[in-house]
Design a protein around this nucleic acid. Sequence first.
DNA 1: TTTGCATTGTTATTTAATTAACAGATAGAA
DNA 2: TTCTATCTGTTAATTAAATAACAATGCAAA
Lengths: 226, 226
Amino acid sequence: MKALDTFRQLPHKTIERLSQYRRALLICLENEKTHIFSHEIAKIQHITPVQVRRDLMLIGYSGTLRKGYNIRELIDLIGEIIDSDKGIKVAIVGMGNLGRALINYFKGRRHKLVIAAGFDTNPDKIGKTMNGVICYNYEEMGRIISEEDIEIGIITVPSKYAMSTAEKLVESGIKGILNYTPKPINVPDNVYLEEYDMITTLEKVAFYVKLGKEESDERVRGQAAR
Amino acid sequence: MKALDTFRQLPHKTIERLSQYRRALLICLENEKTHIFSHEIAKIQHITPVQVRRDLMLIGYSGTLRKGYNIRELIDLIGEIIDSDKGIKVAIVGMGNLGRALINYFKGRRHKLVIAAGFDTNPDKIGKTMNGVICYNYEEMGRIISEEDIEIGIITVPSKYAMSTAEKLVESGIKGILNYTPKPINVPDNVYLEEYDMITTLEKVAFYVKLGKEESDERVRGQAAR
DNA sequence: TTTGCATTGTTATTTAATTAACAGATAGAA
DNA sequence: TTCTATCTGTTAATTAAATAACAATGCAAA
């Protein structure tokens, strides 16, 4: 395996795609396939074959000329790059619909990422096991996170509590935060933060749908003018 | 207002940020603020003030030198750009945890985007109103979407049904699709597609958390060697 | 054997996005 | 009034990402 430093410099977009490639490859593996071509992967991911080959070049993986890439090997290599050896534990703060949806996403997959705890303030939820994950009292976050050695926190609380939740996670010694609320938060530099806002994505789709409509309107007007 | 063509060429990333700026601005407005500086917006969004000013330049908005940008005006302008005049109707296919979570996100916000219908195959859900949205029978999708003039579909079904759901949406005449399942789908060119995979985001966080740990390990080793 | 074809791997080019640099403006202090 | 500090708006430069171009390879068919 290549030096760690090599992987440190991988483009952010490549990291994202590696995760996606692996997901696609796992499905192919289930279908008894052993090898795959760059253009097949590309088709699935809606990108170009060149992009795929370039990404694989960056991680130093070589395919065979007539058979393409060995699916099993490639899955394993991607795992070596993006997974942690011992696995990483994740906590979900906010066991509402979104929190539980995320747990379901992970169920049944043998990931190196394990959802080790949930937290909520609702007494009806505390102490219950929901979708296989124990829901702890929000107030016990510090203790549980340090005892269980949880490194990543996912924030799925109502947005007005986003910032206070983040602070509590940081105090608890978390290393990375994924904020799913539409409210941006601030964390110290030593905590890796990723924010994902579902409303932005939907508004983006709406914008391009609108553009598309205007475009076809113009086409109609253009034809009429002829 | 500028010509539509101006907005057609806005960078994709700028579109995303405009949506985010507006969200932040709406919160500022609630706090009785009337004006805001580029560096304040930048701070909230974790970007640079230059980026903010550049985006606003692209949409042709000017602030005042000592007071910054008029929040109300800017919100309205962003609306003119990214919203549709009449609003756009959205359907959610899959009224599980994720579907319901999305509905909650939108509740109480006066958006131009309206979630006009939900669809599911579960007889227990069909006919019920969930979080204010009626859940229709999956089989009636074609009729409802055309009757209600719904233009965007959000896919939150289990991933093995992602592709068949997409096909049904396309047949129903949908213009844009947002796929929240981890399984990539294919749609015709005239349908705008955005895919968002939560697992990728989480794996990305995990990767950079891992890198961070290795880095501090190296620091420790480096210090020990001295 | 030789030719043609499809594929990989890599470098070069192009495009998109971000950041830097700086002129212009104006309120407020000196 | 003049100077200073602090913003905005815009062009230039840089960086990141994607795409294009193409040599190299090796199987399959002629």
